[in-house]
Design a protein around this nucleic acid. Sequence first.
DNA 1: CGTTTGATGCTCT
DNA 2: GAGCATCAAACGG
Length: 208
Amino acid sequence: MPAHVARLGRPVERSRLARPAVEVAPELLGTVLVAGDRAGRIVEVEAYMGEADPGSHAFRGPTARTATMFGPPGHLYVYFTYGMHWCANVVCGDDGVASAALIRALEPLRGVEAMREARPAARRDRDLCNGPAKLCQALGLDGRHDGTDVVRGTDDVWLLEDGWTSDAAPVVSTRIGLTNGADLPWRWHVDGSAHVSRPSGRGGIVVG
DNA sequence: CGTTTGATGCTCT
DNA sequence: GAGCATCAAACGG
């Protein structure tokens, strides 16, 4: 593990991810996603509960696209949408069970200059990573990273904990951009963060 | 501020 | 063929 990565934290334990995404996702707030020389603190996540979730890509069973999501935890499920955007999930749950946490927003920590170059449309730094496709663009994540192991850090992509101490309560609300499963309260974000995609969905409630 | 609209191509029916 | 876990620009107030 490179020293500049170790400085930001230690890898999350895979066993911690081998649980349903609704349990894991809120715990990911405050962890650090690293991609090469760029890194950001996760401030917004959503849970997708696979075959039990009408909002999940895995709702109708495994397909070629969702193969990673059905695989072991600790890998990245990266998908392409709207003909132009990539979005990244941390795969949760046991091998064979589809469950994943969509990373929706980061607070930039390292490599901000590289992020600015990767996202010329961002007028302010708070616009670099405040959306699931924006953060993938900022970090240079795309289809090549589907299946990459964020516990072992293959492809220099890591998910770290202990790199940051949370001092803000998580807020729970409904997920963004869905038509199916839109009422399920499976979005969490750091209360008061200037780096989330939206301050609150419907019925935002402070949990912690 | 807010809302609306066009871009653009893969995935599954 | 329909829909999409989105974004940015272009509006109107």
